[in-house]
Amino acid sequence: MRITVLAGGVGGARFALGLREAAPDAHITVVANVGDDMWLAGVKVCPDLDSLMYALAGVGDTERGWGRAGESERVAGELAAYGVGWPWFTLGDLDLGTHLARTALLRDGATLTEATARLAARWPLGVTLLPVTDDEVPTHVVTDEGILHFEEWWVRTRATAPAHRFVQHGAERARISDAAHAAIAHADVVLVAPSNPVVSIGTIVGIPGVRDALETAAAPVVGVSPIIGGRVVRGMAVTCLEVIGVEPDAAAVAAHYGARSAGGLLDGWLVAEEDAGSLEAIRALGMPAEARPLLLTPGGPAAQVAREALALAAAARP
């Protein structure tokens, strides 16, 4: 079985870990958001790709939820002393090694897809990790403070600077990578991870060519809700939803994505058991929906969520 997952960082990583356990014989491809990417202190930083890679490699910092385990920050201290970079966005020494290696590969002419493959080859990830595009599409946030890179809004202001809209700079000139397009077109199942619907999944789907690939895919497309009981378990996705006028509600996010039968994205929507009351409204949108436990704790629970998503995909197959 060929499974393709559209994913952001932490939530996407936890779901990918569960899927790898749930479907050990499947060929899994994770197509990742690159809207958080940036150039910082002269190096190319790809937060979502790195969160996915570190988690799947078993070297991520599970306590902080980002970066490498066992980090040191000597280089970050030196950069701060020179007044270089963002003092509120710390690059750990091990993490910086990843960014230096990526930057060297890109400077030598590799695409981001090729550079990601080279980095990922260091570890037995059990999945193929792909950026959705090789083009740069940094997410900017239009705020009362001015236009900020998404990471500045997210990390420095903790999403407290009043935001008016999100803009993927350069998206109109970007295109889906050939590898990402093939992963969607040739999949037996496409899963939308419980990642931020606005700046992770929204950015992925906003890359020219992605929506067309999903619309024409032979595989069923099933999403896993990032909402549990009207709340987002991790991160500040509720704030992002508020910016675009979507309630933090499982049915509202389903309507935001839309049913593929009505020109949207999804053939099925898996919601948390706490949101079972939304099932009738979701099904009225034209997509099958089921309610199951969705808390992505490591090990068995995350794997069971993945199994439930695959089961819904089998039932929703066009």
Score class of each variant (00 low, 15 high):
Ser195Cys: 02
Ser195Thr: 05
Asn196Lys: 01
Asn196Met: 01
Pro197Asp: 01
Val198Phe: 09
Val199Phe: 13
Val199Ala: 13
Ser200Gln: 01
Ile201Asn: 00
Ile201Trp: 07
Gly202His: 04
Gly202Met: 10
Gly202Trp: 11
Thr203Gln: 14
Thr203Lys: 11
Thr203Ser: 15
Val205Tyr: 08
Val205Lys: 03
Gly206Glu: 08
Gly206Ala: 03
Pro208Gly: 03
Pro208Val: 06
Pro208Trp: 12
Pro208Cys: 04
Gly209Phe: 09
Val210Tyr: 06
Val210Gly: 00
Val210Ala: 00
Arg211Cys: 07
Arg211Thr: 07
Arg211Lys: 09
Arg211Leu: 04
Ala213Leu: 00
Leu214Gly: 00
Leu214Glu: 00
Thr216Glu: 13
Ala217Met: 05
Ala217Cys: 06
Ala218Lys: 12
Ala218Glu: 15
Ala219Phe: 14
Pro220Asn: 08
Pro220Gly: 03
Pro220Val: 06
Pro220Tyr: 13
Pro220Leu: 09
Val222Lys: 00
Val222Glu: 06
Val222Gln: 01
Val222Asp: 02
Val222Leu: 02
Val224Trp: 05
Val224His: 01
Val224Arg: 00
Pro226Met: 12
Pro226Lys: 01
Pro226Cys: 08
Ile228Met: 13
Ile228Ser: 13
Gly229Ala: 11
Arg231Asp: 12
Arg231Asn: 12
Val232Gln: 07
Val232Met: 13
Val232Pro: 02
Val233Cys: 14
Val233Ala: 14
Gly235Ser: 06
Gly235Gln: 03
Met236Gly: 13
Met236Phe: 14
Ala237Glu: 08
Ala237Asp: 08
Ala237Ile: 02
Val238Gln: 15
Val238His: 15
Thr239Pro: 01
Leu241Tyr: 11
Leu241Asn: 02
Glu242Asn: 12
Val243Ala: 02
Val243Asn: 01
Val243Leu: 03
Ile244Cys: 02
Ile244Asp: 04
Gly245Trp: 05
Gly245Met: 03
Gly245Asp: 03
Glu247Leu: 05
Pro248Ser: 01
Pro248Cys: 07
Pro248Tyr: 06
Ala250Asp: 09
Ala251Ser: 11
Ala252Ser: 02
Ala252Gln: 04
Ala252Ile: 00
Val253Tyr: 05
Ala255Arg: 09
His256Pro: 12
Tyr257Ser: 07
Gly258Leu: 15
Gly258Glu: 15
Gly258Asn: 14
Ala259Glu: 15
Ala259Met: 15
Ala259His: 14
Arg260Met: 06
Arg260Lys: 06
Ser261Trp: 15
Ser261Phe: 15
Ser261Ile: 14
Ala262Gly: 12
Ala262Pro: 12
Ala262Tyr: 13
Ala262Ser: 13
Gly264Lys: 02
Gly264Glu: 11
Leu265Cys: 04
Leu266Gln: 10
Leu266Gly: 09
Asp267Cys: 09
Asp267Gln: 06
Asp267Gly: 06
Asp267Ser: 10
Asp267Met: 10
Gly268Asn: 11
Gly268Gln: 07
Gly268Trp: 08
Gly268Asp: 10
Gly268Ile: 11
Trp269Lys: 04
Val271Thr: 03
Val271Ala: 05
Val271Ile: 10
Ala272Phe: 13
Glu273Val: 12
Glu273Lys: 10
Glu274Gln: 10
Glu274His: 04
Glu274Gly: 01
Asp275Leu: 01
Ala276Arg: 07
Ala276Gln: 08
Ala276Phe: 12
Ala276Glu: 10
Gly277His: 12
